[in-house]
Design a protein around this nucleic acid. Structure first.
Lengths: 221, 221
DNA sequence: GGATAACGGATCGCGCTACTATCCATTATG
DNA sequence: CATAATGGATAGTAGCGCGATCCGTTATCC
């Protein structure tokens, strides 16, 4: 398959494909006889769709995607792949707010996050970015004095625990390991916006039943 | 309070505060005697923290934040505020992939999303962005042939329904309506990354129990 | 009351990211 | 053999979230 066909079948423009090739997101095609003709396979097409999903649906930066893809192809251990995928955070460069840290180098929120993890009995690697994220949220909640501490999140944690059980159920039926890895990435990553969307829909439903004074109110650009 | 104090107490730089003032995120301070001295109150501080949360923790664009803040201050109906907050989507300018639409102007995924909503008995406004988001995810899932359709999301939907019940429980104890609105925004918005983080932690836990070949594997830069 | 520093207001510019456009020599294609 | 596509490289673009600087005015401190 030539690059033009790859572009047509994937819906990604040729310059963008070239960009991904340059940046190492997409492996080089097999160079044929001459230096200006390369051959791309179905694997490239799958990979390209995966990239577009990670960048487009979730908001991963190109560099984060590169890490994930590297993990998929190089590491054999699915748990490690998971770790990298889970660790990836959306692209941003916001300097973090000044915040005093406790002795261990953690903010108070991070410490609370660890308490929550202990309480749930979860076994996670202590450096996971998710802990930092959770800690940031707890810090922010404490800042705004919302009266929501880590204990308030325990019911949430129990529900997310059940969600993760659903997640691993979705990961059956893959033939080879590479496919399984890709599938794991998709389930973990692609369902994130779906979960948020579902929560918002459920919130809107609950909110309509509770707060709505004017029952119409359904036009948003 | 002068702008320097506002900057110190909020941790936001003066140029950034000025930028927010210019862009209408932050109401102007009360101009005092002269034209070069304005007075900011606690309300500005609270507002500033809210902005930083929306921009920093969730990834809302400045314009999206402006809409939300406008809704908070102008609309009285909490459900409408919720609608706007829920409708807000992270900043991006990715052109959407070419995708054939069915007759109604929806993609197949959006149609499936509506089926799911009907099945759940949720009452939501038909134009909510969350439906589009859900539809995109379903489209993407169908693209990669993951074998995950809208029926597979029903268990997730039931769990998110319970999550949203928790959400509304968190929204008690606010005195005035403005505070209630801000609180609602915070609960809805700030708990999003928390939920994702919790899911990732739970996934890592489940993944470790299922897939891990090498039990160490806990170092991530 | 005079120097100094901070203020509000405005304009310009920067750094980053994810691309897009253009050019080139080479080579498949009709 | 002419045309168009290809791989490869280099530059340019757009938008966003600020930061830097300048300006004239005014509080502040001695």
């Amino acid at each position: 398959m030539k690059i033009s066909e790859l572009s047509r079948r994937s819906g990604v423009s040729i310059p963008t494909i070239k960009y991904y090739l340059r940046d190492g997101l997409l492996p080089q095609g097999q160079l044929t006889t001459a230096a200006n003709q390369a051959d791309y396979g179905e694997e490239h097409l799958r990979r390209l769709r995966l990239i577009r999903t990670l960048v487009g649906v979730r908001r991963l930066s190109v560099s984060a995607v590169r890490e994930i893809l590297g993990a998929i192809t190089e590491e054999g251990d699915l748990h490690q792949i998971f770790g990298i995928v889970i660790d990836a955070r959306p692209a941003t460069k916001l300097r973090k707010q000044d915040r005093e840290e406790t002795a261990g180098g953690d903010t108070e929120g991070v410490a609370d996050a660890r308490r929550l993890i202990t309480e749930m009995g979860w076994e996670v690697s202590p450096g996971t970015a998710a802990i930092q994220t959770l800690g940031e949220v707890l810090d922010a909640l404490s800042d705004v004095d919302a009266g929501i501490g880590w204990q308030s999140l325990l019911p949430y944690a129990r529900l997310t625990d059940r969600i993760s059980e659903l997640d691993v159920k979705q990961m059956n039926g893959a033939s080879d390991l590479l496919e399984l890895a890709e599938r794991a990435v998709l389930v973990s990553v692609l369902l994130e916006p779906a979960l948020l969307a579902l929560r918002r829909l459920a919130q809107e439903d609950k909110s309509a039943r509770l707060f709505s004074g004017s029952p119409g109110g359904g036009e948003t650009a």
